[in-house]
Structures are given as structure tokens and as C-alpha cells.
Design a protein around this nucleic acid. Structure first.
Lengths: 238, 238
DNA sequence: TTTTGCTTGATTGTGTACAAAATGCTCGCA
DNA sequence: TGCGAGCATTTTGTACACAATCAAGCAAAA
């Protein structure tokens, strides 16, 4: 009981660097730290009440997951995935999440189906506040699916890719419309429940396609800084 | 020119922890450090002439890639993937490497084809010394393919999975027979060259299947301690 | 004989101090 | 007024010292 409370307070962290890691990750995914924000070790450590050593470990981990960039001697900053990065990430997501569905077909218990439906209900409920919470929940649905496969590697990769996708959506994506995500998730659950392999895989493929389109559509409008500059430079003959 | 030389000497490492990371990784994949070997931070640091701080960073990274296990307060040791881990890893490999082939179809230049063939020639040449060098080269073929996709994420994951596969093969695999790997690689290149998508994907799928079989076949002979015990336990009605 | 508690040794977790590197700025010069 | 060299500041890279934690071995009691 006491340990349960402690776990809740400390978020089941055994080490401080874990806590810092999670704090930073949440901050990034909640867009509290916008893409490109510099992340000096000193300031973060001071702010969070830990030494630079701890912050450094957390940053190294985030770097490994592609959420921040860690340029030598130049400091860390929140990653700004290029459109190409985005395409790469979604391509891999499609392959992996198709594997998730393929693995899950015929193995889901009624209880697990209910768990999935409960999650989508939560997504549905969060539709009103059109903020990052909605993106977050939509992403967690995919993570939940991956978790059900009980394949650790698959879970790790999907989790990582979903995180990076959130970052991409916040950078390039047009305003998130949760309606279609919810309905697509429901269709997918139905297909999984009925054991329709081809149908389920196909649904997942198209679902990721839809996300990819939503993510990359706005890409050539305003935020793509380098390319924009390149265009100007060309006009000036540089 | 000078920088090229420096890169060669320092293996393009900017930081020491990178060097230690690569050193340990090579040692593990070469089986100089057998699975399960303990990796105390200060022994390694002393041996390699760096402080524990550096070693710690390298270990954290290897842990992230699943090559070592990092139990809190109990020290690091070379990972001993279970048979289940192995199945998970190969399942994800199959999905990702099929994506590799699918991406590569119709994009490979004659020069790249020659590059692939040159690599397989090297594998062929290394057939005689039936050691880990052969496994290593066979793995690098897959990494090379992933590199040609120019998809960074895909490359990172495939690299990681190939590394872990090497570890698995050294743990459970029956003696590596390079002949079939070489011929399968050659068939794959031919299909890629001719742009036969279905054929190439199918070849890759079966190739990974073959590796999986080779990897897991010996699993119930001697080294699989836990399952072995479980079998005994069942016989005793426990 | 088995189990429990303690002690000891080893190993990791964390903080801090110093060194190295890069960036930005000031000052001198053309 | 524009430009470059050198300095100062900031930030990271590394090492080391100390604290916390755990595993093993030993001893004592049931």
C-alpha cells in the first residue's frame, strides 16, 4: 500500500533520470516545448532540481528515440523532423502496425476487445477539446494495440514512432480532426474482433495512409523553413 | 584529406563514449564477450583508459539497443535473449526487411547492384573461416540493403535487429552455414535487379524464415536453460 | 539442519569541479 | 562604415569523489 502510493508519486521511477526523461518527453509531446527549443543541461537541471548528470542521461535517451537532436558542443534541442523524416517514419509505422494487426488476429479475448473499445470511448469523449490531448489519445490507441501483441521489440518501436508522429503532427499537421480517427479505430476493432485478417490489415494500412496525408498536407505552406529560404535564395541568384 | 585520415583513425568518433560504445558492441558481436558476461563499469573504464562516466554512457546506449541488460544496482551484462525474444525480433525483422525490399524495387542503379554483388562476393570469400566473421558479413548485407533505402529510421531499426540477431545466432543457432545465405542473397539481388517486386519480397520473407529456423532449431538442445528446467518440472508434476 | 539477521564488500547512482569547445562580442583597422 | 582578429562568455565533455544500494557470506538462534 505504502509502496503503491510511492509508485504513484514517483511514477514508478527507480531513478531520477527516468523521471526527468518522462518529464521532458511529456513536455515535448504536449508541445509545451515547441520543436526547435533549445535544451541546455544547466537550466533544465536547475529547474528540475537535479544535477546535469541526470539531465544528460535523459537527453541521451531522448536523442536515441529521435525526439531531440544532440549536436556535439552545440547543445540539445527539440527535434524538427523534416518532411522526409516524416515520410520515413510513417512508412515504417505502416509496416510495423500491419504486423501488429496481423499478429493480433485471432488472439484477442473479449476482455481485450472491451479494453480497446473503452480507450476509443475515451478518445471520443476528448473530442471536444481539440488540443494535443486528443492527438495523444489517438496515438496511445496504437501503442495499446502494440502492447497486446506482447512483442516487446514491436512495442518499443511502435511507441517510439507514435511519439515522433505526434511531434510531426504538431509541426506540419493540419488541425487534428478526431472524428475520423475515432471511427477508423472503431472499424479496426470490429475487424479484429471478427478475425477478418485481410480486412483488418487493409484498414490499418489505410488508416496510416490517412494519418500520413493529414500530417504532410500542410507541409509546403509555411513551416518548412529551410526549403522556404532555399526558394528565396534561388530567386536572388544565391 | 587530413580530416579523412583523422576520421579513419578515430573511426569518425567525435566523443570518447562513441568509441567505447563501438568497441563494446564489436566485442559483443564478435563473441569476445559471451552472452551473460558481466560488464562492470570501472573494469571496462580502466581497461579502455576512460572514466566510468564514459563507460556508463556507452552502456546506456547498448542497453537501449537491447545488446546488454542493465539491472539497477546489479550491474550490466551482455544480453541473453530468450527464445521468445528471438521470435519477436525475427518477426519484426521480417516486416521491416520486406519493407526494405519493397522500397528498393525499381530504384536500384546498376552501380548499387554491383555494390551488393561485391558484398556477397566478400561473404563468399569468407566462407572458409566458418567463424563469426561470416555471420557478421551476412548481417551486414541486410544493413547494406537498408542503407540503400535512404530511410534513416528503417536503417536504424534494421541495424539494431541485425545486431541482436547475431547475438541470438551465437546463443542458439546451429553452426552457421554460409552457403545458403550466400545463394539466397544472390537470388534476392537478381530479383531486385529485374524489378520483380513480388518475387523479391517473397524471397526476403523466406530468407528471414530460414534464418529464424536456423536460429531457433538448436534451442531445445542444451543452452536453453529455463525451458529445459520447465520441461523437467512438468515431468515431475510441478 | 534450516532459517534469519547482520556485516562486509562490491557496484552502481549522483553531484560537483575542471577542461575543452563553440559562439557572440568588442575593439582595432582599412 | 564595414570587416576581421582576438577575447570573453556560455555550454558541453570528462573525471573523480562520495553516497546509496544490493548480494554474498557468516554467524547465531530456532
Amino acid at each position: 500500500m505504502a509502496s503503491t502510493l510511492r509508485d504513484k508519486n514517483q511514477k514508478s521511477a527507480v531513478s531520477k533520470s527516468d523521471a526527468v526523461y518522462r518529464t521532458l518527453k511529456r513536455a515535448i509531446l504536449d508541445q509545451a516545448l515547441a520543436a526547435g527549443t533549445k535544451l541546455p543541461e544547466d537550466s533544465i537541471g536547475e529547474r528540475l532540481g537535479v544535477s546535469r548528470t541526470i539531465v544528460r542521461q535523459a537527453l541521451a535517451r531522448l536523442n536515441g528515440e529521435g525526439l531531440i537532436e544532440l549536436r556535439p558542443h552545440k547543445g540539445a534541442c527539440v527535434a524538427q523532423p523534416s518532411l522526409e523524416d516524416a515520410r520515413h517514419i510513417f512508412a515504417v509505422r505502416q509496416a510495423l502496425e500491419t504486423l501488429v494487426v496481423d499478429t493480433l488476429i485471432g488472439t484477442l479475448t473479449p476482455q481485450q476487445i472491451r479494453q480497446l473499445e473503452a480507450h476509443v470511448d475515451a478518445e471520443d469523449a476528448a473530442r471536444t477539446n481539440n488540443t494535443s490531448a486528443s492527438i495523444q489519445l489517438a496515438g496511445e490507441f496504437h501503442v495499446l494495440l502494440a502492447k497486446l501483441t506482447e512483442n516487446d521489440v514491436l512495442l518499443r518501436y511502435v511507441t517510439e514512432l507514435v511519439s515522433r508522429s505526434s511531434l510531426i503532427l504538431s509541426l506540419y499537421g493540419r488541425p487534428h480532426s478526431p472524428d475520423c480517427a475515432v471511427s477508423e479505430h472503431r472499424e479496426l476493432i470490429a475487424a479484429l474482433d471478427k478475425g477478418e485478417r485481410e480486412q483488418a490489415c487493409s484498414l490499418m494500412r489505410h488508416h496510416i495512409d490517412a494519418i500520413t496525408t493529414r500530417a504532410l498536407l500542410k507541409g509546403n505552406s509555411e513551416k518548412d523553413f529551410p526549403d522556404l529560404l532555399a526558394a528565396y535564395a534561388r530567386e536572388e541568384g544565391l
